[in-house]
Every structure is written in C-alpha cells, then in structure tokens.
C-alpha cells in the first residue's frame, strides 16, 4: 500500500552518527529508520547515554548525521530552523529578557517580515496564554519557578507554529507534581493545536500517557531502535482513568520489560 505524504511527514532513513573525540571515534547511533505521521506524538525512550538526545538534535538540525538522510515535509533537514522548534531540557530562556520578550524574539523572527507589530504582540500573548502565563509576561526568568520557565520555553516553541515540536526531556528537571501538571497541559495543547511532536524522555509513565508511539532505543554505544510500541489508548486521556485501564498497564509493562529486562544497564 502506498503511503500518503502525511503518513511520512518526518522521515529518518538509515541514519548513523559517529562523533570524533580525542580518544578516537565514537559511534552513537546506527541504522536508525523511523517515519512520523503528521499530528503524531512519538516518544524516544532509553537509558541515559543511549543517544536519544542525539537523535532529537539530528531532527532539530543541530547535528548533521554521518550517514543517512533526514527529511521533513519533503525537504532534507540541512540545519536548525524555526519550523522544527525545540524545547530544551533546561528551558534555555535568555535571562536578560522578560518572559514576553523571550517569546517575542521567536515570534518576531518567524512572522516579523509579514505581520504588523500589533499582530506580533498578539501572537506572543496568545502563546503565553496557551501555557497559562499571561500574568507573568513582564516577569524576568529568575523571578519565576522552574515549571513556569519550562512553560515559557514551550510557549516560545509553540509561538513559531512549528511543523514539528521537539521536546528534549522537557520535564526532567521538575518535581513530580509540577511534571504531572505540565504533562496534562501538554496533552491539552497538543490536542488543541494538532502538533506533530517528537519527545525524548526516560520516564515510562510519561511516555505511555502522552504518546501515540513509543520508540525504544537499545543501549549505546552504536544504539539503534530496539522496538516500537503503538499506544492504543483513546484520547483525550486522563491519568486517573488510565490507572484503571488494563491496556495502560500492559503498555507500561512492555516498555519496562524492554528497558529493564532486555536492555539491562550495566552497573555504572
């Protein structure tokens, strides 16, 4: 059956990544083949050091693969760009700009050439409203909590209306309650915007809760895709209701089985 372009919106074909280090070359990834549909939510999961962030950086264009091809919307990924917005693990807000200005910097870059100033301001405020931070627009990053900073990071990424939203362990540095709260908000936002998302995580619950598909990576060096799990849970999803859903536990068990039985990590 021939696939339509939306079914292979993002294509990763035979990608390998080798780093040149002082101690010789280090093979991080090999034989990566993956396609992501438009509007799909895909998570990359694996033990730390397995190269999942490297794979995300390849999609972002921050790194260039040593072998293979990455294609987004029928065009080869040649470098980073606002159509593949990244939410970084440590929020990466510019500390000398207010929350508004941090988002506005992105909005201005993407829409500044075609839209009036008032429209840019409206877009910036809309993005902040989407993550529930209208009240903090004039605050500086050091004046707000870690969870709020990460929300500004998400607002900045969403404000660019990216084709693909890339999330690099976005909630890794947050406490459990804030993380759960932001996961729920991300679910709502993605449902509302229909974004295509690739997210890196090491949190099994997070992966099952959010994803349409979970891509499990084998341990490095020279990591590759070990297994892909399709999460068959209806949306909208509710974390409380899922607790009573047998399929949820089945999926969780499958990922845990992969990570802790088949890819048992050597004691560090």
């Amino acid at each position: 059956m021939e696939k339509r372009p939306v079914d292979k919106f993002l294509r990763i074909e035979a990608v390998a990544m080798t780093f040149q280090t002082r101690n010789g070359s280090f093979a991080a990834l090999r034989d990566i083949d993956l396609t992501v549909k438009k509007g799909e939510f895909v998570t990359l999961i694996g033990h730390s050091g397995c190269g999942k962030s490297t794979l995300l950086n390849l999609v972002a264009g921050l790194l260039k693969p040593t072998e293979g091809l990455l294609i987004c919307a029928e065009r080869e990924i040649a470098g980073p760009g606002p159509e593949r917005a990244v939410v970084f693990q440590n929020h990466s807000l510019l500390p000398w700009l207010s929350c508004f200005d941090n988002v506005h910097l992105a909005v201005e870059r993407v829409f500044g050439a075609t839209e009036k100033k008032a429209d840019l301001k409206r877009r910036t405020q809309a993005a902040l409203a989407l993550v529930g931070l209208m009240h903090a627009e004039h605050k500086m990053p050091h004046e707000i909590s870690g969870g709020m900073k990460q929300r500004v990071g998400i607002a900045r990424a969403l404000s660019m209306q990216p084709r693909v939203l890339l999330l690099d362990e976005p909630f890794g540095a947050l406490d459990a309650l804030t993380r759960a709260h932001l996961q729920d908000e991300l679910l709502k936002i993605v449902a509302a915007t229909g974004s295509t998302v690739v997210m890196v995580t090491h949190d099994v619950d997070e992966a099952v809760l959010l994803s349409d598909r979970i891509v499990m990576l084998t341990n490095g060096p020279a990591a590759t895709i070990g297994e892909v799990l399709t999460v068959e849970l209806p949306r909208p999803r509710d974390r409380i209701e899922l607790e009573e859903d047998a399929r949820y536990h089945h999926h969780r068990a499958a990922v845990l089985e992969f990570l802790y039985r088949r890819q048992m990590r050597q004691a560090a």
Binding site: G81, A85, V86, S92, L94, R109, M160
Partner: peptide, 12 residues
C-alpha cells in the same frame, strides 16, 4: 551553548 542553540533554532 544553550543560548547559541536557541539562536540557531530560531535562525536569528
């Protein structure tokens, strides 16, 4: 490097 990565992603 984070700030420079932001600059690259935004294509400033």
């Amino acid at each position: 490097q984070d700030y420079l990565n932001v600059a690259r992603v935004l294509n400033l």
